[in-house]
Design a protein around this nucleic acid. Structure first.
Lengths: 216, 216
DNA sequence: TTCTATAATTGAACACTGTTCAATATCAAA
DNA sequence: TTTGATATTGAACAGTGTTCAATTATAGAA
């Protein structure tokens, strides 16, 4: 019986070894340079063995992505408590999200572009009612609800607004990742302009103009 | 001499044949299923011959993408004249851009994600001063300039605002393409909400609040 | 028309890829 | 020590992009 526990642990360790090795390759050489044989070489096993621990390459990629993405999500949610007003929380969350994504560009792009089941569990969704299920959206949605508490704004519009912030942020991150040779100063200016200004423009739109004034 | 002209034409026809075949495969089976051998089979030539007309696979993909993207750009610029006010032109341009992109999702994604030289010539850029060089940005930039003609808005902020609209639009398109099983109604609602509402929220932010009022 | 130089086209090969599977090695339990 | 399970391997298959020497076709000169 004790032996079974050890085996289980060994299996977990082997999976871990494969995943971290894959992670290393992705980080240093890029996702497109990741191959089963390259992983096998690094861990000094034959390529075949990998298929005893993972169904296929996609499952490995999926797992690596999931891990990376969890880090990003935790970076976002850590902002929830730090800031006082919902507006500041939205700002902070967005900023954290962008920073975290730019720290793991390969993983981030892969998770977002991969429509595999494992990825869909973690990425934001545009489906109606998604705000209540997707972790990336719930926090944002709650902030918006706080902002407009007591004001006559339909739940529908509120959700769409949240989705638009997510979508716009994704677009900015994508562009910043793709255009990697953009100079540091311009990059910072854009991130700042986006988080300090654009996000608010989007968020503050969901109401009558008087309420805009009261928020600024 | 006349023979040279014919040869030139034949080379052009062969290139055309390769590109349209590649285009077909991409449209029906997806970019990841495109292979040199598959193109060769379809045009009933040996795979090697393709390398006499194109440097490598990337050059073929680049050319296919360029063509697709030109269609999208022309769809955008066709809106320039139709609408009266700059606001309506921005709306129309954005709508056209989204629609055109969704009609050729594979090409669009590939152009945007491919950071090859051929792609960089056509995609929007976040570089400072890019608005004056990139076709996707110039039209938008001009509308914004019109909107704020005579008002005290720095050129810098105007450009960044334009870039933010582009970036946000890209994000929406990406998400709509990736989440392909979203239902038609929600898709339309989102596109409408974005073009009719969000774009304006972003665009109208570049000024004092009084000017906002006068624009609505 | 025949010969020659040039360009088009091919087939075979190389070095990769993901994946499968029968054969082998390892090791715990009987 | 033998048995049974499982971990591990090597070889193979079918696919990929790409190169290159050998072949074929063709246009212009003799």
């Amino acid at each position: 019986m004790a032996v079974e526990k050890r085996r289980e642990r060994e299996i977990e360790e082997m999976k871990e070894l494969i995943l971290t090795t894959a992670s290393e390759i992705i980080a240093t050489e890029g996702l497109d340079k990741l191959s089963i044989r390259k992983i096998a070489n690094k861990i000094e096993y034959s390529p075949s063995i990998i298929y005893h621990y993972f169904k296929d390459k996609d499952e490995i990629i999926g797992n690596v992505m999931q891990r990376g993405y969890k880090k990003i999500l935790s970076a976002v949610s850590s902002a929830k408590m730090e800031q006082e007003t919902p507006i500041d929380r939205v700002k902070q969350m967005t900023k954290n999200y962008i920073r975290a994504a730019l720290h793991m560009p390969e993983e981030f792009m892969a998770v977002q572009l991969n429509q595999s089941e494992i990825a869909l569990k973690h990425t934001a969704s545009l489906f109606k009612g998604a705000s209540k299920e997707k972790p990336a959206l719930t926090a944002l949605y709650q902030c918006l609800q706080e902002m407009y508490a007591g004001h006559d704004v339909s739940e529908d519009k509120l959700e769409m607004t949240g989705q638009m912030i997510v979508v716009a942020t994704l677009g900015l991150i994508f562009k910043l990742i793709i255009e990697k040779d953009i100079d540091e100063e311009q990059r910072e200016r854009l991130i700042d302009f986006y988080t300090e200004d654009i996000v608010l423009r989007i968020a503050k739109g969901t109401h009558n103009d008087n309420y805009i004034e009261s928020l600024s």
